[in-house]
Computed example of a mutant assay.
Amino acid sequence: MTGGGLFVSFEGIDGSGKSTQARLLADHMRELGNDVILTREPGGSPGAEEIRALVLQGDPDRWSAETELLLFTAARRDHLERTIRPALEAGKVVICDRFADSTRMYQGLSRGDLRAKVDRLHDLMIGLEPHLTLLIDMDPGAALTRAKARATPEERFEDFGLSLQERMRQGFLDLAREFAARFVVIDGNRAVDTVAADVRAAVSARLAVAVS
């Protein structure tokens, strides 16, 4: 582990509950005495938050998939330099709501066959994977309903509709099989507390850290 730190990411389709689960895990680990950084992508640093507004707001066709890939990678690089890497080197726990796997899906799969370019850019500019990735798997229709109910300005990807959600769900499940050593798939179609208990169990089992 980088500098003794621990890096956990949450992934899933829009509305799957991953942001809630990331927050609950961070709160729980802080209660146990861990020094925790809870962050998100796109975002997590001042520069990356500015890019977040560009990619998550506006018309669905505002950017091509190729342009999105460059914007997301730029945001991730700033996030890595200013937030993630310093925290890991200081021995902290970093819990991130989305990381590179979302780019592998949303830009690499959903809007063109760009996966190879996503991976090349990641290797060149980022070069870091989480120690553990928790995929909160949820029915796409229910997740989209939940996501749209939030009524925030950041609904550009939700506006692509149910077909994107369905492709992304299957894509994430495929990705979990591809990177089985670091992925754990958790059923998100249940009560929040039940999902949170499974999240804590997965962290404890995979990373040999006390979270309960």
Score class of each variant (00 low, 15 high):
residue 94 V to L: 05
residue 87 A to I: 07
residue 116 A to N: 05
residue 143 A to K: 09
residue 17 G to R: 10
residue 172 F to H: 14
residue 25 L to D: 04
residue 209 V to Q: 05
residue 75 A to I: 04
residue 81 E to Q: 13
residue 148 K to E: 14
residue 66 E to Y: 01
residue 97 D to W: 06
residue 25 L to R: 06
residue 4 G to K: 11
residue 51 I to S: 06
residue 149 A to V: 09
residue 113 D to A: 14
residue 8 V to Y: 02
residue 37 I to T: 11
residue 160 F to Y: 12
residue 66 E to T: 09
residue 155 E to S: 15
residue 64 S to Y: 09
residue 125 M to C: 13
residue 94 V to R: 03
residue 11 E to K: 09
residue 67 T to Y: 02
residue 91 G to I: 07
residue 13 I to Q: 03
residue 59 D to W: 01
residue 203 V to W: 09
residue 118 V to D: 08
residue 87 A to H: 06
residue 21 Q to Y: 11
residue 24 L to V: 04
residue 176 A to M: 01
residue 76 R to T: 02
residue 19 S to I: 12
residue 203 V to Y: 07
residue 112 G to R: 07
residue 188 G to D: 04
residue 189 N to E: 12
residue 192 V to M: 11
residue 59 D to C: 02
residue 89 E to T: 05
residue 8 V to A: 03
residue 141 G to N: 13
residue 20 T to A: 04
residue 210 A to G: 12
residue 144 L to F: 03
residue 100 A to P: 00
residue 27 D to W: 01
residue 98 R to Y: 04
residue 209 V to R: 14
residue 201 A to V: 00
residue 137 D to A: 14
residue 34 N to Y: 15
residue 150 R to E: 04
residue 74 A to N: 05
residue 48 A to W: 07
residue 150 R to V: 10
residue 197 A to M: 06
residue 19 S to D: 04
residue 102 S to A: 15
residue 86 P to C: 13
residue 125 M to T: 07
residue 69 L to K: 03
residue 202 A to L: 00
residue 22 A to N: 03
residue 133 T to F: 06
residue 210 A to E: 15
residue 96 C to G: 00
residue 145 T to D: 10
residue 156 R to L: 08
residue 143 A to F: 05
residue 18 K to M: 03
residue 151 A to Q: 15
residue 127 G to D: 14
residue 25 L to N: 07
residue 34 N to P: 00
residue 199 V to L: 03
residue 162 L to H: 08
residue 67 T to E: 10
residue 34 N to T: 01
residue 75 A to C: 07
residue 21 Q to N: 09
residue 117 K to E: 13
residue 98 R to L: 03
residue 146 R to T: 13
residue 199 V to F: 02
residue 142 A to M: 12
residue 200 R to V: 06
residue 118 V to W: 12
residue 24 L to Q: 12
residue 4 G to I: 08
residue 51 I to T: 01
residue 51 I to L: 12
residue 207 L to V: 06
residue 148 K to V: 11
residue 129 E to G: 00
residue 44 G to N: 04
residue 129 E to C: 02
residue 20 T to V: 13
residue 171 G to N: 07
residue 58 G to V: 12
residue 144 L to P: 07
residue 191 A to P: 08
residue 12 G to M: 10
residue 193 D to I: 05
residue 119 D to M: 14
residue 77 R to N: 03
residue 197 A to Q: 13
residue 118 V to Q: 10
residue 157 F to W: 06
residue 1 M to Q: 07
residue 84 I to Q: 09
residue 163 S to R: 14
residue 117 K to P: 00
residue 159 D to R: 15
residue 28 H to Y: 00
residue 135 L to Y: 04
residue 193 D to V: 10
residue 63 W to I: 03
residue 165 Q to H: 15
residue 73 T to G: 02
residue 90 A to K: 09
